[in-house]
Design a protein around this nucleic acid. Structure first.
Length: 390
DNA sequence: ATGCATGAGAC
DNA sequence: TCTCATGCATA
């Protein structure tokens, strides 16, 4: 059946130029029918407030705690004396320890964001949160918690789990209304920063699992793309925003620690460049082979000289000799009646660039010229490694 | 970046 | 049966 486009979250530009959100009602977005975004937002508040009255008990299905929900943001804290919401700067990074300790959630829980969204859908608040850098802080604090304390996250595998559903404390505050323009700003900011960091959408999606946020697993490149291009539903955007904000924050940190040798802990993709395989041209190879015939174990100085002569890097030549010796040894063994297990897989463990993991090929200065007796014993009992690296 | 499909949950 | 979030595969 032909369904209307879903997840339509037009950019503000598109929105204003077209004059309206489209298909909002049908796509589950209640912002429809209003030409003015402000009216839409207001209508959303009203509608959601009404919805909430009806659905407050329904939405109890597994929720994130406030602190987890706003991971990456300073946690809103209801200031009972002022009736406003403060932000706790110490809670920028969520701690799931409570949940873990209570057994409510396991560290690998991967609850669907739909759970989150179910919550958000019913718990809009008129609160915004401190901004990412370069964005004006315009959050008007109102009520603190989406789920006012008693929320819990269902454990792993929400779908099938019989995890206890924690009683949803009645929202003591208004719902959050995330300004669409605010989302748009964040999406743009996020995209720019991501690109600056040299991280792909797919990388971000994968890295989310490393945030260890309860209920947050990896996401696909598609979803990240859709977030950046605002083609998710409003609720979906709202749900993803704090998560992506959290990632971005950690990624920025990780960049810094990485510069000082730190580990990005999965927040940033492995940027280890793929080794490019050196290709030695046939003429050079012939020369090398000739040298090899003369002396299969040239000294460092000799290798340097050869490298210079052939305009190759010394290491390339050194590795070539290493590999050549292995190759020779292998063919000797094979030719000598040994079965393949005696050295099988050797070839697959070495390569032209010297990442020779199975044979001996020490760097200069550490070269120990093994005696001929040692050679074959080195790998005598090694099973066919190709079985492990198939 | 996006068309199409899937599965869970709501109705 | 519909909605929605999300992913796969591909343009």
């Amino acid at each position: 059946m032909m369904q209307p486009p879903q997840r339509l979250y037009p950019s503000l530009n598109a929105m204003t130029s077209s004059g309206r959100y489209t298909d909002r009602m049908q796509s589950g977005n209640i912002f429809g029918t209003f030409d003015d975004p402000f009216l839409q937002a207001r209508a959303a508040q009203v509608a959601l407030a009404e919805m909430d009255v009806k659905n407050v008990n329904v939405s109890a299905a597994s929720m994130l705690r406030q602190a987890d929900m706003f991971a990456g943001y300073p946690t809103p804290v209801l200031n009972t004396s002022t009736g406003t919401v403060d932000f706790d700067p110490n809670s920028v990074v969520p701690s799931s320890s409570n949940l873990l300790e209570s057994g409510l959630v396991s560290s690998d829980s991967m609850a669907s964001l739909q759970q989150v969204m179910a919550m958000q859908q019913h718990h809009y608040q008129q609160a915004q949160f401190p901004q990412y850098p370069s964005m004006p802080s315009q959050f008007s604090a109102a009520a603190a918690v989406i789920t006012a304390g008693a929320c819990a996250v269902a454990g792993n595998n929400m779908q099938n789990s019989l995890m206890p559903r924690y009683p949803l404390a009645a929202p003591t505050t208004e719902m959050i209304d995330m300004d669409p323009r605010e989302l748009e700003r964040f999406a743009e900011h996020f995209k720019q920063r991501r690109i600056k960091l040299g991280v792909t959408q797919a990388d971000v999606g994968k890295a989310l699992a490393h945030l260890k946020m309860p209920g947050v697993g990896s996401l696909s490149q598609s979803t990240i793309c859709r977030f950046e291009s605002l083609t998710l539903s409003h609720n979906n955007m709202v749900a993803l925003k704090p998560i992506l904000h959290s990632w971005l924050e950690k990624a920025e940190d990780a960049i810094k620690t990485k510069e000082t040798g730190g580990d990005s802990q999965g927040i940033l993709p492995n940027t280890e460049k793929k080794r490019k395989r050196t290709s030695i041209a046939a003429p050079e190879k012939r020369v090398l082979e000739e040298y090899f015939r003369q002396q299969p174990r040239p000294t460092g100085d000799r290798i340097s000289a050869i490298a210079e002569k052939l305009d190759l890097k010394k290491n390339v030549v050194r590795v070539w000799f290493c590999n050549q010796r292995q190759k020779q040894k292998r063919s000797r063994n094979q030719g000598g009646g040994s079965n393949s297990t005696s050295n099988g897989g050797m070839s697959s463990r070495s390569n032209a660039n010297g990442a020779n993991t199975a044979g001996k090929c020490e760097p200069f200065g550490e070269i120990s010229l093994p005696t001929s007796t040692a050679d074959n014993n080195t790998i005598k009992n090694v099973p066919n490694l190709s079985l492990f690296y198939a």
